[in-house]
Write a protein that binds this DNA or RNA. Sequence first.
DNA 1: CGCCCACATGCAAACGTATTGCAAGAAGAT
DNA 2: ATCTTCTTGCAATACGTTTGCATGTGGGCG
Lengths: 146, 146
Amino acid sequence: MAPSKSTSLDALRDLLRGAGLRCTGPRVAVLQHFQTRRGPLSHGELVEALADREFDAATLYRNLIDLEGAGLVNRVNVGDNVWRFELRDQDTETQSEHPHFVCVECGEITCLDQVRVKLTPAPGSLKSVVNRVSEILLKGQCMRCA
Amino acid sequence: MAPSKSTSLDALRDLLRGAGLRCTGPRVAVLQHFQTRRGPLSHGELVEALADREFDAATLYRNLIDLEGAGLVNRVNVGDNVWRFELRDQDTETQSEHPHFVCVECGEITCLDQVRVKLTPAPGSLKSVVNRVSEILLKGQCMRCA
DNA sequence: CGCCCACATGCAAACGTATTGCAAGAAGAT
DNA sequence: ATCTTCTTGCAATACGTTTGCATGTGGGCG
């Protein structure tokens, strides 16, 4: 019968502790805000969104970095030279195989699970410089922004 | 019998004038430097590379912007929040944008001119979200960092 | 060939985001 | 309850990007 609020709060608590981070006010607030938000969030947007809580901007910045280091959020760059962060899906363990598509307009990130990318190098071009490709990023315009 | 130096200089002159830009010392120097360089170049790197010419940094910055507006260079973003510019291939009319490879260790950026990327979408996956792919970014580990 | 004007340069400064130093404060293990 | 270590708050710095403005210059035109 526990209210959902405290339930999710406990979940966040476990999430933080499990990641080796202390459970503090700012961090819980950040995670909570991420849960209500779809899509990447910049540091500035986060500061403004939590302005009423009056957390220090540097604290929130470091929180984002820490959460990224703990694997709870991803840091993405949609091409406007501003770091953005998004809650990382905890369910999917391996996400390395499929390419990601980033819309340069709305910044939405799409996992192209079904898309296969085939690289056909000319002799001596790819092999000479590239050892291993770990991530494939496609940038462009999504249908909605077209 | 004209020396190749003056020949290419004339070519650059025509390139600039043809693009509607005045032929000035800084602009010629920028284009010349791009010709000797493989891969994208940041503003800071360009300033340092042409330090002996003692051009103003703001001038070089505006040159990059102007050259981009004239279609002579492309502006790319490899994910480190720094704008980079590369000479645009004038021969290929259809945007044959080559993919870029970024080493996640040393940060070196490589133009994979010869690499062709073929996307084979499963039915209804790519078309539904992606309208147009404008940039392809491959991240991984380069040979030297392996 | 020289004039003239729009465009380009140089210099300085503003700006926004990213990043760090340090002392005070809080979390959580014992 | 205490103590250690991590975190916060505040300030200041670093860095790339961008702009204002006065001066200088390319190149078209007479």
